[in-house]
Structure formats: structure tokens, C-alpha cells
Measured scan of single mutants.
Amino acid sequence: NITNLCPFDEVFNATRFASVYAWNRKRISNCVADYSVLYNLAPFFTFKCYGVSPTKLNDLCFTNVYADSFVIRGDEVRQIAPGQTGNIADYNYKLPDDFTGCVIAWNSNKLDSKVSGNYNYLYRLFRKSNLKPFERDISTEIYQAGNKPCNGVAGFNCYFPLRSYSFRPTYGVGHQPYRVVVLSFELLHAPATVCGPKKST
């Protein structure tokens, strides 16, 4: 009989979030998941669920729940959905087409922007091929755009693959930082360890 609440607040209220290319994953298990708490945590810009209804979450049980978190800019949030393409979905964080879970995003301009520009958040701009779903690539190998090998040196047709967002508070919403948490629900042929409040007794 599990009584402890799932530590969603640790994920959502973390002081620092990860850069999207090096997104963070927390496995959540053996706890009571009260998803209604999430609705009250922040004024969400996005709370979209796929393959599951957000209002039914509190009635369900899962084997595992994974919470992935990272920062992107406002106009990239739409890429965090099944079947999307674009720089983020292709080279940084890719959801599977049959994704079961929820994408939660909110504006973090007050936390993640600086007047002089916050350069701490990076994204991958160049990659030889698209990522597979939930693949994480943290390599910093020089990207070869031409025929000549780069031998690890940046220059003509040889690019450092990561680029930094420079978040400034005066930017338009599309270029402001957004914190994203992706909850993916895993149903294996194994005992369910993460249940809503109704199912945990």
C-alpha cells in the first residue's frame, strides 16, 4: 500500500533546468501520483496529453512515469509533440509517434532571462542524422558540413554543433524561455507502482 506522493514538485520547481540537447530525465515510481497538483503548480502555457485524457490521469496506474525536463524558446514548444519536425524535434528531443503522456510548458522569462542575455541554455544546431525517439546526444564533436574532414577544428564548413540561446527579458514571447516537462507513461507487463490517489488504497 503506497502512500508517499510522487515528487513532481522537485521536477517542476527545480531551480535550474537542463539545456534541451542534454535534457534531464527523472524516473518516478512507487508513489501516489496526484496530477491535479500539477494544474495548480504554475499558470501553464501548455498542458497537452496524448493517448490519455488529462482529467482521467488520477484514475490510472502505470509501471513507471518518466519526467523529462529542459528549456526551449516559446515558438519551439509546438515541436514537443508526436510527429513534429524542426531543429528541436530533429536534433535535441524527439517524441515517438505513439507517445503516451503529457507535455507541460510554461513561460520562464522571469527566471531564465537576463538583461545582458542568459547564454547558459544550449541547443544542438547541427547533426548528421535525426534523433530516434527519446535519444539523447550530448556530443560536442565538430560538425563537418563540407567534404573536407574537420579534424576537430572549427572553421570553414566545420561547425561547433551547439548554439546558445541568449534569453533577454525584452524579447518577444516566441523568443522567451519556456520550461518544459514531458511526462511519459510506461505500461509494462509488470506491477503498477505509480497510481492516482483513488487507485492507491
Rank of each mutant, 00 (worst) to 15 (best):
N1W: 02
N1Y: 06
N1Q: 09
I2A: 14
T3L: 07
T3E: 08
N4C: 08
N4V: 10
N4E: 13
C6M: 02
C6P: 02
P7T: 09
P7H: 11
P7S: 13
P7I: 07
F8Y: 06
F8G: 03
D9R: 09
D9P: 07
E10T: 09
E10K: 10
E10Q: 11
V11W: 07
V11P: 02
N13D: 01
N13I: 00
A14E: 08
R16C: 08
R16M: 09
F17I: 05
A18W: 03
A18C: 04
A18Y: 07
S19C: 05
V20T: 03
V20F: 03
V20W: 04
Y21P: 02
A22T: 06
W23K: 02
N24F: 02
R25D: 04
R25H: 04
R25Q: 02
R25A: 02
R25C: 03
K26W: 04
R27V: 14
R27H: 11
I28A: 06
I28E: 01
S29L: 06
S29W: 06
N30D: 11
C31D: 06
C31T: 04
C31N: 05
A33I: 15
D34Y: 03
D34V: 03
Y35Q: 06
Y35V: 11
S36G: 09
S36E: 09
S36F: 04
V37M: 13
V37C: 12
Y39Q: 14
L41A: 11
L41S: 12
F44L: 12
F45W: 12
T46M: 13
F47W: 15
K48C: 06
C49Y: 00
C49R: 00
Y50A: 01
Y50R: 01
G51Q: 07
G51R: 11
V52G: 03
S53V: 07
S53A: 12
S53I: 07
S53M: 10
S53C: 07
P54H: 11
P54I: 15
K56S: 10
L57K: 04
L57G: 05
L57Q: 05
D59H: 12
D59N: 11
D59K: 11
D59W: 07
L60M: 14
L60G: 08
L60A: 10
C61L: 07
F62L: 09
F62N: 07
T63G: 10
V65Q: 02
V65S: 05
V65E: 01
A67L: 11
A67W: 07
A67R: 00
A67C: 08
D68L: 01
D68F: 02
S69C: 04
F70T: 01
F70I: 00
F70K: 01
V71K: 01
I72H: 01
I72Q: 01
I72K: 00
R73Y: 05
G74Q: 08
D75N: 11
E76R: 01
V77D: 01
V77N: 03
R78H: 12
Q79Y: 04
Q79M: 03
A81N: 03
A81T: 03
P82C: 00
P82I: 00
G83T: 05
G83N: 13
G83K: 12
Q84K: 09
Q84P: 02
Q84V: 10
G86E: 02
N87D: 09
N87C: 10
N87I: 15
I88F: 03
I88E: 03
I88Y: 01
I88M: 02
A89C: 04
D90Q: 09
D90E: 08
Y91E: 04
Y91I: 05
Y91H: 08
Y91C: 05
N92C: 03
K94I: 01
L95K: 01
P96F: 00
P96I: 00
P96Q: 00
D97K: 09
D97W: 07
D97Q: 09
D98G: 07
D98P: 06
T100L: 13
T100Q: 10
G101P: 00
G101H: 00
G101A: 00
G101W: 00
C102W: 00
C102M: 00
V103D: 00
I104W: 10
I104Q: 00
N107T: 04
N107P: 07
N107D: 05
S108K: 02
S108L: 04
S108Q: 06
N109G: 07
K110D: 15
L111N: 11
L111Y: 11
D112W: 00
D112G: 02
S113C: 08
K114D: 15
V115R: 13
S116I: 10
G117V: 06
G117M: 07
N118K: 10
Y119F: 13
N120G: 12
N120S: 14
N120K: 14
N120L: 09
Y121W: 06
L125G: 15
L125P: 15
L125W: 14
F126A: 13
F126G: 12
R127H: 04
R127C: 05
K128C: 08
K128V: 09
K128H: 13
S129L: 07
S129A: 12
S129M: 08
N130V: 15
N130G: 08
N130P: 15
L131F: 02
L131P: 03
K132S: 09
P133K: 02
F134T: 05
F134W: 10
E135A: 07
E135N: 05
E135H: 06
I138D: 12
I138V: 14
I138S: 10
S139E: 07
E141M: 07
E141T: 12
E141W: 02
E141F: 06
Y143M: 08
Y143E: 08
Y143R: 06
Q144D: 07
A145S: 11
A145T: 09
G146K: 05
G146M: 05
G146Y: 04
N147S: 14
K148N: 12
K148E: 14
P149Q: 12
P149E: 12
C150Q: 05
V153P: 07
A154N: 11
G155R: 07
F156E: 15
C158E: 05
C158A: 02
Y159N: 10
Y159Q: 11
Y159F: 12
F160S: 13
F160E: 15
F160Q: 14
L162S: 04
R163Y: 08
Y165C: 03
Y165Q: 05
S166V: 10
F167G: 05
R168E: 13
P169C: 05
T170H: 14
Y171Q: 15
G172W: 13
G172I: 14
V173P: 14
V173I: 13
V173K: 14
G174I: 08
G174C: 08
H175P: 06
Q176E: 07
Q176G: 05
P177K: 03
P177D: 05
R179E: 04
V182R: 00
V182P: 00
V182G: 00
V182T: 00
L183K: 00
L183I: 08
L183P: 00
L183C: 02
S184T: 15
E186A: 05
L187K: 12
L187V: 12
H189R: 13
H189N: 15
A190Q: 13
A190S: 13
P191N: 15
P191S: 12
T193I: 09
T193H: 10
G196T: 11
G196D: 11
G196M: 10
P197D: 12
P197W: 15
K198M: 12
K198W: 11
K199N: 15
K199T: 14
S200E: 13
S200D: 13
T201P: 14
T201R: 14
